[in-house]
């Protein structure tokens, strides 16, 4: 059983349905014992960073997530869930994240329209990463976000990105931790193919 961490932010049904479609059985839970027993952890998220990290901390699950991830359990953060993996965010202030990945979440300070909303194509940075197994470079995925993970030139976690005036990290990985900025559950067949590959690589 894989656990979608429930910290009271938004509708998790579509995320759960997407994992079900690729054959990953998931449970939406905020219970410590479920997280400890889980085969892998999924951290979803919509809304603002501040509210999300507040809610997540209030569940008391952060130390348990830390412990499980250190033991090598896979964790995948999706959309805002990816941003939470970083050290800090500047959305509506200055907030500390989970700190699994080095870097900061900054506003998309660009001339193009913000939020970065719609279908953008993926460019591969680490083409041999197994999560890309069932998709091709330039496949389109669906983004909705105004902040992005900025880790400067030291972006060794970068697996795939999109161009939107700036380089937008789309898939990142640090060992057993993955982050996906776009919405695989809203990205039609390409999104499912990414989850399909994820399922294989963690099993």
């Amino acid at each position: 059983m894989h656990v979608i961490i429930d910290y009271g932010m938004g509708n998790l049904d579509s995320v759960q349905r997407a994992f079900t479609k690729v054959g990953m059985e998931t449970k939406i839970s905020n219970k410590a014992e479920d997280i400890k027993k889980a085969k892998s952890l999924i951290l979803p998220g919509v809304g603002a960073f501040r509210d999300a990290i507040d809610s997540l901390e209030k569940t008391g699950l952060v130390p348990i997530i830390n412990e499980e991830v250190k033991k090598g359990k896979y964790l995948i953060g999706i959309c805002l869930g990816m941003q939470l993996l970083y050290e800090k965010s500047y959305e509506y202030g200055n907030y500390k994240g989970l700190g699994f990945i080095q870097g900061e979440i900054k506003f998309l300070d660009i001339k193009l329209k913000v939020p970065h909303m719609g279908w953008n194509n993926l460019k591969f940075k680490t083409a041999d990463d197994p999560i890309l197994k069932y998709i091709k470079e330039d496949d389109y995925v669906y983004f909705v976000h105004s902040y992005y993970a900025s880790s400067g030139s030291n972006n060794k976690e970068l697996i795939a990105y999109s161009d939107y005036e700036d380089l937008i990290p789309a898939i990142v990985r640090k060992e057993n931790i993955y982050g996906i900025q776009f919405h695989p559950e809203k990205s039609a067949e390409v999104g499912l193919n990414i989850l399909r590959a994820y399922k294989e690589l963690i099993s």
Binding site: H116, Y140, Y164
Partner: peptide, 8 residues
Amino acid sequence: MLARRIIP
């Protein structure tokens, strides 16, 4: 690049 969207 962001794609133009076709929306039924």
